[in-house]
């Protein structure tokens, strides 16, 4: 009897198009009914594009619904046509919407905690990037290993590690990996595995 996701699309034709609530012929009041209607209508007319969940190695397929007028993502959910998850998602994948740009709780400014400090300070991107570059150069110059104990050329840096990011997709991870390897890093890790 298991109703698959695709079959349901077929049987639900019996329910008919349009919002079921409005078919009741009663006034549901302005706020919530309006919100429901707008949301479902927006999702129905949104541009759908596929992506892969960034969090773990399973690689579930996700559909992003983009409101093309407003230019932002309004919903994300599992891709029923994806062979790996067939539309399902775990708690992390279900929460993917929160890393879209319209999450008001996302950090928008650089926060810096100095060594030994217990407080975060707001800093500018220019300051942060210059500071990172300065420290990477200093540490790399100091600890760069050209040859190992056997005299073999290794050109590596063991004094710097890179971590992240679970919010990057495959294509974004590539330049990160390329840059870190170019610097000679060997400790390159991703927090979703930790």
């Amino acid at each position: 009897m298991n109703v698959t996701r695709r079959e349901f699309l077929a049987i639900s034709g019996a329910v008919g198009a349009g919002l079921a609530l409005s078919s009741l012929g009663i006034d549901l009041g302005p706020a919530k009914a309006y919100a429901d209607e707008v949301r479902i209508d927006k999702v129905k007319s949104a541009k759908q594009s596929t992506t892969i969940c960034p969090y773990c190695g399973v690689g579930c397929g996700i559909i992003c619904y983009t409101d093309t007028k407003a230019g932002n993502i309004i919903n994300t959910e599992g891709d029923p046509d994806h062979p790996i998850n067939e539309g399902s998602l775990c708690a992390k994948g279900s929460a993917l919407y929160q890393i879209s740009s319209n999450n008001p709780d996302r950090l928008k400014k650089v926060l810096y905690r100095a060594p030994g400090s217990d407080k975060w300070e707001e800093k500018s991107w220019d300051w942060a990037l210059a500071e990172i570059a300065k420290r990477v150069k200093k540490t790399r110059d100091q600890y760069f290993i050209e040859k190992n104990g056997k005299g073999q050329e290794v050109n590596r840096v063991e004094a710097i590690a890179h971590i992240g990011s679970a919010a990057l997709d495959n294509e974004e991870c590539w330049p990160v990996q390329a840059m870190m390897r170019a610097l000679g890093l060997v400790y390159v890790e991703h927090q979703a595995r930790i």
Partner: peptide, 29 residues
């Protein structure tokens, strides 16, 4: 109800990765 009325599965049922939640016509369920 907004999703169901528009041919979509309830969000929880759709997300369930283990098949613990299924949705369908009442007599079948």
């Amino acid at each position: 109800n907004d999703r169901v009325g528009n041919g979509m599965l309830p969000a929880c049922v759709k997300a369930c990765p283990t098949g613990a939640m299924t949705f369908g016509k009442r007599d079948e369920i």
